[in-house]
Computed example of a mutant assay.
Amino acid sequence: MSDRLDDLERRIDTLRAGVRRAMRARDSATARTLRAELRTAERAWDSLVSSDTADPTPGTHDEPAPARSARLVTVREQVHQALAMLGAPAQARLVVAVSDAFFHGTLRSPQLTSLRRDEERSFKGSPYNRPYYLCAALTDRLSPARGLLAVSTWPVERRMVGPLSPRVDFLTCATRVAEEVGRLPFPFPEAVRLLARMSRNIPGATGADLGPPDPGRVIDAAGTELRVHAGRDTRDRAELAERAASQLNDVARLFGAATLSTIMNREQDTDVRTGARTTRGSR
């Protein structure tokens, strides 16, 4: 428990310093992103403190202490916390793994299934009413990329998915995970296992032995490959971002444009419901 609190306190200090630097540079977009991450980290700290100090006497409350403390950090906040650390769009299974490995998370993959749809409904009801939204990465058709979650405060380019983007995003995420593991004096076993799994998919990231991965080696290997792909991927994302800015409204820029198949499915569903009502009315 104390190790996790120490790690969160260091992250909070780092985020606060980042907010101050962004404000001095008048970089309001970065400041907003860092402030949202700071609030999430502070809630995680509160959750751990509450869990550690909760009354352990059975029967004194209506529900167990762990259940009460877990609610202090919502599913939405836990997902944002993990994505903010990764810095790139990610699949639900990676978000869950990062939350568990670094933030004492309670996420399960099924909880993320409808999250993006809930965020879209919230945005449509009250646009920009929240400091951030959990939204979609966008494909070259400007439609939502299947299963990929992103954060609305990221630059649009970061949420685009070009031909090389899946590999670039994986390398970016692996670098972030390695950096976090390297900062921890005693990394959690879950974090070491996650880094080991990711490093196996990066040439040169693992040694001949079967010991724990070296975070510095993973960072270097990922950086070497990133330098090969980054230029082309940056250009592809910039082109897609320009298309999104010119062709999409606010909702679609965050959650993607409906594809032709989606529209056809909706029309077919409408026809089925209308036909059913007509049939009943003709009897």
Rank of each mutant, 00 (worst) to 15 (best):
S2Q: 12
S2M: 10
R4S: 15
L5G: 14
E9F: 01
E9D: 10
D13N: 13
T14V: 08
L15Q: 06
L15Y: 01
R20F: 09
R21Y: 03
A22F: 01
A22L: 10
A25Q: 13
S28A: 15
A31W: 02
A36H: 13
E37F: 04
E37Y: 03
L38H: 02
L38F: 02
E42I: 11
R43E: 08
S47I: 01
T53W: 01
T53F: 11
T53R: 13
A54T: 03
D55P: 06
T57H: 02
P58N: 11
D62L: 15
E63V: 15
A65F: 01
R68V: 11
S69H: 08
A70H: 03
A70R: 14
L72M: 14
L72I: 11
V73I: 10
R76H: 09
Q78Y: 00
H80T: 05
A82L: 06
L86V: 03
G87D: 02
A88T: 01
A92G: 09
L94K: 04
V96S: 05
V98T: 05
S99W: 00
S99E: 01
G105S: 07
T106V: 13
T106I: 10
L107C: 04
Q111A: 14
L112P: 00
L112Y: 01
T113E: 12
T113V: 11
L115C: 07
R116Q: 11
D118Y: 04
E119L: 04
F123Y: 15
G125P: 04
P127K: 12
N129H: 13
Y132W: 09
A136V: 01
A136H: 05
A136T: 03
A137K: 00
T139N: 13
R141N: 08
L148P: 02
S152M: 11
S152T: 09
P155V: 08
R158I: 05
R159L: 15
R159E: 09
G162P: 07
P163D: 10
R167F: 05
T172D: 00
T172A: 04
T175I: 03
R176T: 04
V177K: 05
E179L: 14
E180R: 13
V181Q: 02
P189M: 10
P189G: 09
R197V: 08
R197D: 15
S199W: 00
I202Q: 03
G204Y: 03
T206P: 00
L210S: 13
P213F: 00
D214T: 12
D214I: 09
P215Y: 00
R217E: 06
V218G: 05
I219P: 08
A221V: 03
R227A: 14
R232M: 10
R235N: 08
D236A: 10
D236W: 03
D236S: 12
D236E: 13
A238F: 02
L240R: 04
A241G: 01
R243E: 06
A244T: 02
A244C: 07
A244N: 04
A245H: 04
S246Q: 11
L248M: 06
L248S: 06
N249Y: 02
D250N: 13
V251N: 12
R253W: 00
L254C: 09
L254I: 04
G256E: 09
G256R: 07
S261Y: 07
M264P: 07
M264G: 06
N265S: 13
Q268F: 07
D271G: 10
V272E: 08
R273P: 00
T274H: 06
G275N: 12
T279P: 02
R283T: 07
